[in-house]
Design a protein around this nucleic acid. Structure first.
Length: 705
DNA sequence: GCCGTTTTCGGCCCGACTGTTTTCAGTCG
């Protein structure tokens, strides 16, 4: 929630409204809430700003318009105070008296919020009473024993501060979804196989399929008499590099890659650790139990089966070019990435609860926090109290709370029962972000979310013609093995340089690739195989909004994926100009798919600023005029861009979405699975995606028929 | 600061855990 950079109020660069973009306003409101927290403001006032920031972020209308005509005051969650502030900012370019608040709170205090175990009250206390303004000063004061003398502090608290600082420096940042699921699902399976564990399920942000996760939460149903034995078995798992706590209801551990060491088989294809395993799986003779763990992890993704035999058959070059996009490696710092993959650890919390409480605890620890708040309010409206222990009528529980109150709970075998007691359809975990799912569940109008098995192909993939590591034939064979009907090839266009060398396909070579694809398609047709390659290109969107390649090259392709690669100039430009240039590119008649729309790399860099709502609105208009313009969910777990937060809006604008693995190697096609997770999170149904069409149907659509 | 079977102040989600206290404040999820 808190970035490291210095916080300043943005200054307007324009002579007339709108002086600030929506994302600037959203960022300032979020910052105000943090600053107020550190200033000791009323917690509900703090929440009002967080809430307003969230509301404005998901606002689909144009913020400038709402500020101009006063419509902003009609938005739920925006009142006189914040509404007035936003209006002033957008219309006049000033931020009221906020400068004072920004001046008052030192940046160091903001950074201290990232220290686990430290919150705004303590930080304010340290600042007010000891004059501490930075993490370094805090560390010195703690080592010096100054903190222990403060009110309601002591030696243990002081030690915890030091541990927190240490943890922050060692474990900064969040893990990508693929890393989280790799550990989370494997551990979930191990738990299920332990005697004494009746049920076990992954919870938390990994279960909700957030693009990054902080730690892994697992809930297990364990009888009280078995808790000791189960705890002991968890603590004896391989790969534990640290134990943070172990009590009667919770075990907190830190897992390292050795957790997988005795697996006796390669990791699933979305493993972030390809190099470590390939070497080690040879030497370790593997025991039966752990082998089943990793295989189950892989096969739980329906397009993700039989990973090892695939990679052997195709002889994928190892590690050094493991099929990861050069742009991704550059953003992550090249070789530093290799180092990072091998030392990845993750925090895990296993919560053990009585079997009858399991569904309530699972729902509770799946979250999100905001979703839980909504459900508890809904429960109160019905005279019920919802907690992680149960759902109990208020008139029966008296003044008891927690597990005691849950003795009166309505029964539930699974989450669907809980939701039914509240008058709701069962809400899939991916949707639990308080972004309309509760209302939809009340109205019985939740979407039928897309499944991996609905996918029939994808349109943006690379071969050896640009920076891929496999041939057309090899990529096609992999797609056929996945049961797909089509595969779109979109190698880089010629102007793309990564690391100082051109990796794109020269304009005069595009026709050659076209011939090759034509021949392959013919041969499959002759033998009665229902499969075709579609010929596209990933054309650079140049800084001025033009597309790479001459018009006649693009006109002869099945599809054009337009992507921004020269991130530098786009990230230094303002949102309004970027939006204009992107729309200019999309309006080109040959343009079909907007590839990785913001260019972000998770854990590597932010995308460039752009008004994605405006872009999607324009794409919607062009679709209405009859030209196909689709937006990509880049399914690489390093990108997951389009962000799921915009998927629902794309659907409303009737902009088709296409999940693209952006594969640089055959195994990379399996990344589509992650794209499906994001599409589900974005409320998408099979009909909203191009991937669910048959090869023939899609070819016609692309041809404008 | 926002909201209101709402008329302008009182409430705003729930519980566990920890460390400090000897009843509770702060943090977390």
């Amino acid at each position: 929630m808190v970035s490291v950079a210095t916080w300043k109020l943005p200054r307007s660069l324009r002579s007339q409204p709108p002086h600030f973009s929506k994302s600037q306003v959203v960022a300032v409101l979020e910052q105000i809430s943090t600053l107020l927290m550190l200033d000791g403001a009323n917690a509900f006032r703090v929440r009002a700003y967080t809430n307003a920031s969230r509301v404005i972020q998901s606002l689909e209308q144009d913020l400038a318009g709402l500020a101009e005509n006063g419509g902003i005051f009609g938005v739920k969650g925006i009142g006189k105070g914040i509404g007035g502030l936003v209006t002033e900012a957008v219309m006049q370019g000033t931020w009221g008296g906020l400068g004072e608040l920004y001046e008052k709170i030192p940046d160091g205090l903001i950074q201290m919020l990232q220290i686990p175990g430290l919150g705004p009250k303590r930080i304010k206390q340290f600042h007010d009473e000891l004059g501490i303004e930075t993490i370094d000063e805090l560390k010195v004061a703690a080592e010096d024993g100054q903190l222990a003398n403060l009110e309601r502090m002591g030696k243990k608290s002081e030690l915890r501060v030091l541990e927190g600082i240490d943890l922050l420096t060692r474990m900064a940042g969040r893990r990508r979804l693929d890393v989280g699921l790799l550990y989370g699902e494997a551990l979930e399976n191990r738990l299920r196989n332990m005697s004494g564990v009746e049920r076990a399920s992954l919870a938390g942000s990994a279960r909700r399929r957030r693009e990054t996760i902080g730690d892994i939460d697992i809930v297990a149903a364990v009888k009280e008499s078995d808790i000791e034995a189960v705890s002991a078995e968890i603590l004896a798992l391989p790969g534990i590099v640290g134990i943070k706590g172990s009590g009667t209801s919770k075990v907190s551990i830190i897992l390292g890659t050795e957790f997988f060491e005795n697996a006796g088989t390669a990791l699933p294809s979305h493993s972030p650790l390809p190099d470590v395993k390939d070497a080690e799986s040879e030497s370790s003779s593997g025991n039966g139990k752990s082998e089943s763990v990793v295989q189950t992890t892989a096969s739980s993704h329906s397009i993700d089966q039989d990973v090892t035999s695939e990679s052997d058959a195709l002889e994928i070059p190892a590690a050094s070019d493991s099929g990861i996009d050069g742009g991704v490696l550059a953003a992550l710092g090249g070789e530093a990435w290799q180092e990072m993959s091998q030392t990845t650890t993750i925090d895990v919390q296993v919560r053990m609860v009585p079997p009858q409480a399991f569904p309530f605890t699972l729902a509770y620890f799946t979250g999100s926090k905001e979703h839980n708040v909504r459900l508890r309010q809904l429960a109160l409206d019905r005279g019920l109290r919802l907690s992680e222990w149960g759902l109990s009528p208020l008139d029966l529980i008296g003044d008891t709370t927690g597990i005691e109150a849950a003795a009166h709970s309505l029964p539930a075998i699974d989450e669907a029962d809980i939701h039914a007691h509240l008058g709701l359809e069962w809400i899939p975990p991916e949707l639990r972000e308080d972004s309309g799912e509760v209302e939809a569940a009340i109205a019985n109008s939740l979407p039928r979310l897309v499944e991996p098995s609905d996918i029939k192909g994808a349109l943006h993939n690379h071969t050896i013609a640009s920076d891929g590591v496999a041939t057309l034939q090899q990529m096609a064979e992999e797609a056929m093995d996945l049961g797909w009907e089509f595969l779109g090839i979109a190698d880089h266009s010629e102007s793309l340089n990564i690391g100082g060398r051109s990796i794109g396909v020269a304009a005069d070579k595009v026709a050659e690739q076209s011939d090759l694809i034509h021949e392959l398609n013919e041969s499959w047709a002759d033998e009665g195989t229902e499969f075709r390659l579609l010929h596209g290109a990933e054309c650079d969107i140049l800084t001025d909004g033009r597309l790479d390649y001459p018009d006649d090259v693009r006109e002869n392709l099945n599809h054009v994926v337009g992507s921004v690669h020269a991130l530098g100039s786009w990230r230094n430009r303002d949102e309004i100009e970027n939006t204009e240039m992107l729309i200019k590119a999309i309006e080109d008649p040959t343009f079909t798919i907007l590839g990785h729309p913001t260019g972000r790399i998770l854990g590597g860099r932010d995308g460039f600023p752009v008004d994605m709502h405006a872009v999607l609105r324009r794409m919607g208009e062009l679709n209405e005029e009859g030209t196909l313009k689709a937006v990509e969910i880049n399914a690489s777990p390093y990108r997951l861009d389009l962000d799921w937060r915009f998927c629902h809006f794309a659907k409303q604008q009737e902009v088709p979405v296409v999940i693209n693995p952006d594969a640089h190697a055959p195994k990379g096609l399996r990344d589509v699975w992650f794209g499906v997770q994001i599409a589900r999170k974005g409320w998408l149904e099979p009909a909203d995606l191009l991937n669910t069409r048959s090869g023939k149907e899609l070819e016609k659509m692309l041809a404008g028929e």
